[in-house]
């Protein structure tokens, strides 16, 4: 019930004006393996876009191109109207400070405690924060994911789901305008998955953030996505709302929803 209500509320609030992220004809191959072949995508401010696609279809590659972790072979990627493929590392880092990235497996720094993991980015971004402000930000970020008690644990002491949630709070602590989620619910039980979905919606509303969510989890796609894209053969093959894709004429598209 709660979820349904959230979706309705969110749809009203979303304002579809400004384009925040835009892929224009992006190509990327690894040797003979052509992964992206003229990939186009645009995401509006405040929108949650879900990307579906088979394993190995290039979803992770696409969002890694978006943050400059992987250099594209051809094409342009605009974030806030600047083409990040043409930026030098200092300019790129300025853009990255506004992006939160949840890695598929959390990617927590395993030599640091949860607290240090969260403080790490914060301290490097703004050198003039005092200890109190950092503590407050950490507590708030952990409260958002409901894991305040894990603050002094090492990553090796956390379960898979906890790691993911800490990874999420680490992405959130810098209060980014864009958040990229790489399979936020994979490997989690249904209850925790729905909690994460709720969290994604909460973040969208709280910070007016723009998100790209990669997932294999249809429930997650349905709950969190304003718009759903399906990637195939290196391009966006189909796009639309959850319901419209589910009832699509195309057999291949429909097969995702069985």
């Amino acid at each position: 019930m709660l979820i349904e209500k959230n979706i309705k509320q969110k749809k009203i609030e979303t304002n579809y004006q400004q384009t925040i992220i835009e892929f224009k004809n992006v190509y990327k191959s690894f040797g003979k393996n052509d992964v992206l072949k003229g990939f186009n995508l645009s995401v509006k401010k405040g929108e949650n876009v879900v990307i579906l696609g088979k394993s190995g279809s290039g979803k992770s590659v696409a969002i890694k191109c978006l943050v400059g972790l992987i250099k594209v072979d051809k094409g342009e990627i605009y974030i806030f109207n600047t083409d990040i493929t043409k930026l030098n590392i200092y300019e790129l880092n300025k853009v990255r400070m506004n992006i939160g990235f949840l890695f598929q497996n959390g990617a927590l720094y395993d030599s640091m405690t949860v607290k240090e993991n969260l403080a790490f980015t914060l301290k490097h971004h703004s050198k003039n924060l005092n200890q109190n402000e950092i503590e407050n930000a950490i507590n708030e970020a952990l409260e958002d994911v409901g894991l305040k008690e894990a603050i002094d644990k090492m990553p090796s002491e956390l379960s898979g789901g906890m790691k993911k949630r800490i990874g999420l709070s680490r992405a959130l602590i810098i209060q980014p305008e864009i958040i990229l989620y790489d399979e936020p619910t994979s490997g989690l039980d249904t209850i925790t998955s729905r909690e994460i979905d709720e969290l994604i919606l909460k973040i969208q509303k709280k910070g007016k953030t723009t998100s790209v969510i990669i997932t294999h989890d249809l429930a997650c796609a349905k709950i969190t996505g304003d718009r759903i894209l399906i990637i195939r053969d290196g391009i966006i093959y189909a796009e639309g709302s959850f319901e419209s894709l589910k009832n699509s004429d195309d057999n291949w598209v429909r097969s995702f929803f069985i």
């Binding site: 943050v67 992006i99 720094y109």
Partner: peptide
Amino acid sequence: AELGSMKVTEQIDAMEVSAIN
């Protein structure tokens, strides 16, 4: 071994996207 495992588990990538060199 330490940096290798950081690389494999994407911790180095995570640093890079957080704009930390």
